[in-house]
């Protein structure tokens, strides 16, 4: 009998846990040889991020900033770093992506889900006056937002926690692992024995083919309109809003492959929010060494960066 290569017998086996955090199921996969107690430490890292920086967590720095709008609030250097980075991203996208867009989300009913009609343009114009990242001031380790403003951390904090948790996993010497935060943000580690992880991209139409992406030592971020939308008079409206116009984007999918989940998640959300103007921002994204694709409102797929390693599956 012909000797098969040894890899033919090897099936990678992982310990997996899934916990609910940041309003998402966060799955961690570690090699089978790892101690189960590591999960407590990894989820513990994410829990610290949740406690200190989540705008929905009472007593967090961002919660304090929101509750004391108009006044300076003492924060830590990580909070300052996060806000500065997000201001830079907002500048890059001309304010289409803006972390102060909470009043806009509330207006559209994406916060309490009670609102079920399209807001009037007058109401949108009024709320847009409060949405402006330029009014976030940083002075050393103090932050102040304007009165009436509110920061929302939904577009970046989960992925920031994923980055910290994965850095922790790598620092303790694990070289093959995956963190999947609700399917929209994933980060993987790979070694020679397990060179890549596979990610299934949802198909947009029933007769479409499902795609697989191979990911190696990178972060994957996804924005789309599969589950999170509001249906008003039969029309679907995405929860990702253009903070400049005040209206939801109609892009179908954005996939970003980047070095960090934080960067990827912000870019996926921001590019999604640009709507039909997305092509204008692709050169800046490519310059950051990021790859991915956009499926626009007409169903046209535009790839950018290094071509992704893809394969097509049966629908």
């Amino acid at each position: 009998m012909q000797n098969l290569p040894q890899t033919a017998y090897k099936i990678p086996v992982y310990l997996t846990q899934e916990r609910r955090c940041f309003y998402a199921n966060i799955k961690v996969k570690l090699p089978f040889t790892c101690d189960e107690s590591l999960f407590e430490e990894i989820y513990g890292v994410m829990d610290v991020v949740d406690r200190y920086y989540n705008s929905y967590t009472s007593g967090s720095y961002i919660d304090q900033i929101n509750k004391n709008a108009g006044n300076w609030v003492d924060v830590d250097d990580t909070c300052v770093w996060l806000i500065q980075q997000l201001k830079n991203f907002a500048e890059l996208f001309d304010g289409i992506y803006d972390i102060t867009s909470m009043p806009l989300l509330k207006l559209w009913g994406f916060y309490d889900q009670k609102q079920n009609e399209i807001p009037t343009s007058a109401a949108i114009d009024t709320v847009l006056k409060k949405v402006d990242f330029r009014q976030i001031e940083i002075d050393g380790e103090r932050v102040r937002i304007a009165k009436g403003q509110e920061i929302i951390t939904g577009s970046f904090l989960k992925s920031f926690a994923v980055d910290l948790a994965m850095d922790y996993i790598r620092d303790i010497g694990i070289k093959d692992a995956l963190i999947n935060a609700g399917g929209s943000s994933m980060r993987v580690l790979n070694n020679y024995e397990h060179p890549h992880w596979k990610i299934k991209i949802p198909f947009l139409k029933r007769d479409d083919k499902e795609q697989l992406i191979r990911l190696s030592n990178k972060a994957f971020s996804y924005s789309g309109m599969g589950n999170n939308f509001k249906q008003i008079d039969g029309q679907k409206y995405s929860h990702i809003l253009n903070a400049k116009t005040g209206y939801p984007s109609a892009i179908r999918q954005v996939v970003i492959i980047s070095n960090s989940s934080f960067e990827g998640d912000v870019l996926a959300t921001a590019l999604y929010a640009t709507g039909d103007d997305y092509e204008k921002y692709i050169p800046s994204i490519e310059a950051m060494g990021v790859s991915g694709f956009v499926v626009d409102s007409r169903g046209r797929k535009v790839n950018f960066g290094i071509p992704l390693e893809e394969e097509v599956l049966c629908s």
Partner: peptide, 23 residues
């Protein structure tokens, strides 16, 4: 948040993860 955790450890292979537009 952590009390609600589903902390049961499972064993899995490197099966493909599904992308989704969760919040």
């Amino acid at each position: 948040v952590m009390k609600q955790a589903k902390s049961r450890t499972r064993i899995e292979s490197d099966n493909a993860e599904s992308a989704s537009d969760s919040l």
